[in-house]
Design a protein around this nucleic acid. Structure first.
Lengths: 248, 248
DNA sequence: AGGTCTATGTCGTTT
DNA sequence: AAACGACGTAGACCT
């Protein structure tokens, strides 16, 4: 574990340190007064101010101000970082191909530069995702309704793969769309596309049912469900059981 | 501009420095070997490894590994940060109310701690957004089609506000949905909801038209547009003109 | 606080 | 590389 620090370095020294850190594959932070230009899918300009630039060995770049979870400018993993000194000032460019995108950070002053030698086993275990909800539903199909039988997950349709495909107690095909959180109109549209696809596939004589499974729905989404003859079942993604307030 | 640095501090010294930095409203980075627990809308665990914790004065917290644009764990702005030493080890907790969420970072070792005294005018100027495309359309309505006349933007419907509402050359109402990038099936569903809402509002005798405006469409979305009798116009959000490859 | 929608969304998966 | 959908999406704007 090595940490290399430069405090108020000359731009030329900052450059040398940066290039060493690039070679070593370090995680780098550069704090200083800078201006930022971005051009790619969109484009942006940011006037001079103090920001923290984070450069990762995987090619990501993040420009963070003192506010917000989201960086004010960034570049995704897979980019190439280049550092240089132009007009006596440190400049960091990060380039992406396909789509062609450029991030350009020009420093007036470098207050602080740190290079961290990192290795991370990186084994995040996340619970309460839609995948967890799916497991709950497949293991406890009666939570959807008595007699419901799951036949497949990720079953293909012309509208794309649906979350769960099954049959109800009377043998009618059922499309189930799962959401880990309260749903709006978009999820209803998604379910409807799967139901439509199945109706074309099975023919007009077969009635296809659609069930949206989520902790809750918005009013607008509830109206759309009713209009389209789709059902709703309230389930919590972490427990796989009805939420505490699912009586109404 | 002040930068305070601690290199391999004792946990107790790290705590004192952190609390000073909280008081001053500094932007803080803590680099060290840590484990992370999150519990809230979902929950997660992350085993020990070297990561960079970024604590902002607005209450955001970001845990970054050596990979990815997205932090492995985080807390949004508005949270309260608390530092302590438990069992001789530095611990940082970040708490959010509504929804109740907790981020807990426990350090085995603190390799490096820095507090930055930041102020940022923060005036990002972004071009090529959907708002820009809307301005282009309102200023050059003939780009939609000859005779198109915009009457309102963000016009309310029972399905929510539509981007642009107008009339075509023969006086028929037109709902326009704008997208800054290539669109998929979801955008068609959105436009359809607006058109449906207008049809109910105007009555069955009035034909409502719907136009999707974007640089391009996917095949599936194109099928849905055709099925629903909706139109597509290819426009680029940065130029407001047809993209280079919009002939087909 | 809840609803709806945009985003340089990002990220994973599959074709 | 394109398409499609999930995400602890975040963020903005409105009610």
């Amino acid at each position: 574990m090595t940490v290399t620090t430069l405090h108020r370095p000359a731009h030329r020294d900052a450059l040398a340190s940066l290039e060493d850190a690039f070679r070593r594959g370090d995680l780098i932070t550069v704090f200083g007064r800078c201006s930022v230009e971005y051009d790619g899918r969109a484009s942006s300009s940011l006037g001079a101010g103090d920001r923290l630039l984070l450069l990762k060995p995987d090619g990501s770049a993040l420009v963070h101000t003192d506010e917000g979870r989201t960086p004010v400018n960034w570049q995704p993993p897979g980019c190439d970082h280049f550092a240089s000194v132009r007009d006596g000032r440190l400049r960091v460019r990060s380039v992406r191909r396909s789509p062609e995108e450029l991030l350009d950070v020009r420093f007036d002053r470098v207050h602080h530069l740190v290079a961290y030698d990192v290795t991370d086993p990186d084994d995040l275990d996340l619970r309460g995702s839609e995948a967890d909800l799916k497991e709950h539903v497949v293991a406890n199909p009666e939570r959807i309704e008595p007699g419901f039988e799951p036949l497949a997950t990720e079953r293909e349709t012309t509208a794309g793969p649906m979350d769960v495909f099954g049959e109800d107690a009377s043998g009618r095909p059922v499309a189930v769309e799962l959401k880990r959180r309260r749903v709006g109109p978009d999820a209803v549209g998604q379910l409807r596309r799967y139901v439509d696809a199945l109706e074309r596939e099975f023919g007009a004589d077969t009635t296809i049912r659609g069930v949206l499974v989520a902790p809750s729905v918005t009013d607008r989404a509830a109206s759309l469900l009713e209009r389209d003859g789709l059902d709703f079942v309230a389930l919590d993604p972490t427990t796989g059981r009805p939420p505490d307030d699912s009586a109404p």
